[in-house]
């Protein structure tokens, strides 16, 4: 894809937490209806990248453009209302709110659009059954479904998923990953951040491999052999 038709375009992004530089400089693009995976070991800077996109880091340098306009100086609520939704690491649900209320928080912060409760319940039928229960009473996998559903309720043009498979059983992860192609087919760009390389590459149209805050490798999963990925993943 070319830089011009990219939904999200990042140029020379550096992220700072106080004086500490969490990300020394990355470039990336995500297109509409494209699933982009970012793989990398723990502490490589993946979460910092996602948080920077939604305006949740101390300070950035470089450029983040979304839909052709810069996100510089925009606060999170404005960014989310503009069409970027984050599924935060560790789910970060509101434990005392019901399933339905948690989902509705996504609608509160997002854009108007076609995805509503019915669509989310269609993707995750178990949530419909449990809609009145409090989020904390549900299993980890179901909670992750709520977190993804909450982000989708914001009707994003770009969905950012931070470690959505973390700590979950493989079958449950399958249930969650299964919906990503449906989401993509709605024309939504998706960024998936994972430590689980296999899972991540399977779903991706393109991937970036991150090592110590820089992209060490990028490409299409079907065109890249596993050994090369591993080499760049571990920095060997």
């Amino acid at each position: 894809m070319t830089a011009d038709d990219a939904l999200l375009r990042i140029d020379g992004l550096r992220v700072f937490h106080g004086k500490f530089e969490a990300l020394p400089g990355v470039d990336m693009q995500v297109g509409a209806g494209e699933v982009v995976s970012i793989i990398g070991a723990n502490g490589a800077g993946k979460s910092s990248l996602l948080k920077a996109i939604v305006g949740q880091v101390d300070r950035i340098e470089g450029e983040i453009a979304f839909g052709g306009s810069s996100l510089a100086g925009r606060a999170t609520p404005a960014i989310v209302a503009g069409g970027i939704a984050l599924v935060p690491e560790g789910r970060r649900l509101f434990p005392s709110l019901s399933v339905e209320e948690n989902l509705s928080m996504g609608a509160e912060v997002g854009r108007k659009g076609e995805i509503g409760l019915d669509e989310v319940f269609g993707m995750f039928p178990i949530l419909r059954e449990r809609r009145r229960q409090r989020a904390r009473e549900l299993s980890g996998g179901q909670q992750q479904m709520i977190a993804v559903g909450r982000a989708l309720m914001a009707n994003p043009r770009l969905l950012l998923c931070d470690e959505i498979s973390l700590g979950l059983a493989p079958t449950i992860v399958n249930d969650i990953y299964r919906i990503l192609p449906q989401v993509r087919d709605r024309g939504i760009g998706i960024v998936v951040v994972e430590q689980d390389i296999g899972r991540s590459l399977k779903v991706a149209d393109r991937f970036y491999c991150m090592l110590e805050g820089k992209f060490s490798l990028t490409g299409r999963p079907e065109e890249t052999d596993r050994a090369t990925v591993m080499k760049h993943y571990f920095g060997l």
Partner: peptide, 22 residues
């Protein structure tokens, strides 16, 4: 709806901030 938002930030104000709930 406002009540639910109040309870949401009361539950976890950091989480609210992450998803763009002011």
């Amino acid at each position: 709806r406002t009540g639910a938002k109040i309870r949401a930030v009361s539950d976890d104000v950091e989480a609210a901030r992450l998803i763009g709930l002011s």
